[in-house]
Amino acid sequence: MDLFLQLAATGLVVGSLYVLCAIGWGLIYGTTLHFHVAHGAVFTLAAYYAYAAQKLLGLPLAIAVLVAICAAAISGMLIDLLIYQPLERRGAIRTTLFIASLGLLTLIENVLAIIFTPDPLRMDVGSLGDSVQLGPVFLTRLHLVSVATALLGLLALMAFLKYSRWGQAIRAVSSSPEMARTVGIDLRRVHLLTYAVGSAITAPAGILIAMDVGVEPYRGTTFVLLASVAVIMGGIGSIPGAALGALFLALLENLGVWKIPSEWQSTIAFGVFLIFIVVRPRGFFGRKIQSAEI
């Protein structure tokens, strides 16, 4: 039973990182319909930004994290501005954007591997690395920070979408792009904003990994794949759905280890995903996919 609780706690911690990645990716996909796998690169870049800001520029941890989040938001916007928007202006179909995105992901990962080597690089976290005992469960303070960050990030994003004018514009574009344009909403600006917000919300996940086990160039690919699975499970267009899907996947992976050897982790996740997509393609709370299509 102790092992079960420990695995559940670990699942929750990993899940909080998946949540941050999935709600960022889900926001972008639900609004722009870009299958933005290069989001994985933004996630990894955020981690390297934070590492570089702390280790190379010598900034204090908190400042390094803030700088990295802003830099990640700008990176996401630049990808839209310099790659997707020019392609869309020339009438590229969504598959083209996906392939461009995939190419960019590979490119950034490999450039990062050249600059920083493929070895994990860990940030200094001071007392955040101290362990905490909660009953039979052992975690670090950093793990608790991860869970709190995910919770706060999720609530902040939902409040932003619900109450701010820009959030309303994002929801309007996500629900009916044509109508949004009809009342004078500039799609390209809303897309840029979506990339900024979606990248900024995912950045802490990468940074937390750099703080915990260290950043590697290729981890973003797994994360973005899991994020897309979580979003489709949760239902496209639903932020709480994406979070729920992400948490579900993480718990499944980690609790699965209780009875099944750990090398089966991703097989479990993707196996369940296959069942989902066949049996319930709309996910937990999703809208019909057609309604989002132009």
Binding site: E178, M179, V183
Partner: peptide, 24 residues
């Protein structure tokens, strides 16, 4: 001009299929 520019200049439209923001 793009639709949002046309709107700013003063022409707006409805759609035959309403395209409301249903969840808003």
């Amino acid at each position: 001009l793009a639709p949002h520019r046309v709107e700013r200049l003063g022409v707006v439209r409805t759609f035959q299929h309403l395209r409301l923001w249903n969840k808003m």
